[in-house]
Design a protein around this nucleic acid. Structure first.
Length: 270
DNA sequence: CGCTGACCCTGACGGC
DNA sequence: TGCCGTCAGGGTCAGC
């Protein structure tokens, strides 16, 4: 469930309860995640102070002087602040127990998430070829236009490609394309600079707005403070196939691109 | 290099 | 009520 706004919401929820605190224990109840949790991770983290909680793409980075804990929430993961004595429930795979007595509890039914370690001088392969952050200045219409030269695949796949730009998941890709009046199946290389400028601005807008409202949350996402997000109610197309377009009343169509559902309006998007 | 499809895993939901 | 197929917000990887 987590897209970039959800991950950023999680980072902000978790940071006040972890930054500057020492880890007393890492409890791994289930090590079979997307990749196995390294067996040495508990000893690496025990006694380490979490100096900073950062985000790169949809990765959370917990900085310590010994190295960095890299966490990804996958598709169904969440990280919440709870009392360390609270009984763990189903799919509560990992606890980062803090000296404060609370802990960051990782829950992930589908286990597509990961907990990995990055040594101080290491260049982690997962972070190696990532595109720019969508909310950075480096990301704009000219950049997208430049990168799209020669690309024949659908624009939706293009903006969801982490090597092009990070953090644009299925929900926000659908929404940004609707707001920009671009059909998801249009070839990326056949879109004008002007339209890319609109698209880049809408990607920034939709992500920023979602972050402000604490993420989208379709089913059970909760941020670090356990509160659900409120962005879902203002979605224009995502999850609304067959329903009338909010702008023109045309019934929204659905198609599959790269194994993911894409919803669009034939009238508003060209 | 660009693109497609398989795959990792559990759970919710709809049809029968 | 229960069984079965389909689908889900993520990303990597192999293969053409």
């Amino acid at each position: 469930m987590p897209e970039l706004p959800e991950v950023e919401t999680t980072r902000r929820g978790v940071e006040p309860h972890s930054r500057g605190l020492r880890v007393t224990e890492l409890r791994v109840r289930e090590a079979r995640l997307r990749w196995p949790v390294p067996s040495e991770l508990p000893s690496l983290l025990q006694g380490a102070t979490l100096e900073a909680v950062e985000r790169r793409a949809k990765y959370l980075l917990f900085r310590t002087q010994r190295g960095t804990l890299l966490v990804h929430l996958g598709m169904s993961g969440s990280l919440r602040v709870v009392d360390a004595n609270e009984q763990p429930g189903r799919h509560d795979h990992i606890d980062i127990v803090m000296e404060s007595g609370s802990c960051l509890r990782f829950n992930d039914p589908r286990r597509f998430g990961c907990f990995l370690w990055i040594a101080p001088d290491e260049e982690h392969p997962l972070l190696g070829h990532l595109g720019p952050e969508p909310l950075s200045e480096a990301f704009d219409g000219a950049y997208l236009y430049h990168r799209a030269r020669g690309r024949r695949g659908p624009i939706k796949n293009f903006i969801m490609d982490g090597k092009v730009v990070v953090g644009v998941g299925n929900i926000y890709a659908n929404e940004a394309l609707f707001l920009s009046g671009i059909r998801p199946q249009r070839a990326a290389g056949r879109i004008s600079l002007r339209r890319y400028e609109v698209l880049a601005a809408n990607i920034k807008q939709v992500l920023t707005s979602a972050i402000t409202q604490g993420g989208t949350t379709l089913r059970d996402f909760v941020g670090g403070d356990g509160k659900p997000g409120y962005f879902a109610q203002q979605l224009f197309v995502y999850g609304r196939a067959g329903q009338p377009c909010k702008r023109c009343d045309e019934l929204l169509r659905e198609l599959r691109l790269g194994q993911r559902s894409s919803v669009y309006c034939v009238t508003c998007q060209r």
